[in-house]
Amino acid sequence: MGNHNEFGKLGEQMATDFLLEHGYKICVRNYRYLKAELDIIARKERILAIVEVKSRNNRFLEDVSDAINQKKIKLLVMAADQYVVENNLDVEVRFDIITVIKKGGKLSVEHLKDAFYYF
């Protein structure tokens, strides 16, 4: 497995740990529906957070809007809707992005709530 895949897995684990530390319950990781994959589905009270995780190093920093385009948003929304329906949930759904950035050997986590409002 390539180093980028390992770093991606580490990023998803760090994002999961971050959410747990901030009072979220992890419902499922890597939920798949048709061509879509939701990295993390987490819940905090009546909010269901659909979390896209982006792991980057300082040599490959891109604007989040370049990494998540309208097609990706459409797939995420479709998969989130399926998850809510199949689990018969009555919740507010929010789409978040967590970025894990490696700079000079240090890792930092940033959480952007309601991320699609910025697109």
Rank of each mutant, 00 (worst) to 15 (best):
H22Y: 10
N57R: 00
M78S: 15
N69I: 14
V28K: 11
N57Q: 03
N69L: 11
L61N: 02
G2K: 10
D81Q: 14
Q13C: 13
E37P: 03
T16D: 06
I26P: 05
K72L: 13
Y31F: 10
E21Q: 09
V100P: 06
K9T: 05
N3T: 10
Y33T: 08
E12K: 15
E92K: 12
H111I: 01
R94G: 00
V64M: 15
S55Y: 04
G2M: 10
A15H: 05
F119S: 11
G105Y: 01
M14Q: 03
Q82A: 08
L76F: 10
N30S: 03
R56N: 14
Y83K: 03
D90Y: 13
N30V: 00
V84W: 05
N58E: 12
D90R: 08
F60D: 15
Y83E: 03
N57W: 02
I41W: 04
E21F: 05
G8F: 05
A79W: 06
D39H: 00
K74N: 08
G105V: 09
L48F: 03
G23V: 00
V84H: 11
L61T: 01
L10E: 04
V53H: 00
N58C: 13
S108V: 11
G2Q: 09
V28D: 05
L38S: 00
E45Y: 07
E52H: 08
A115T: 01
L19K: 01
E86V: 02
S108P: 12
D39K: 02
L75F: 04
Y31E: 08
I97V: 14
D63R: 13
L75G: 07
F7D: 00
E62Q: 12
Y24M: 04
F60V: 15
A42R: 00
R46N: 12
K35W: 01
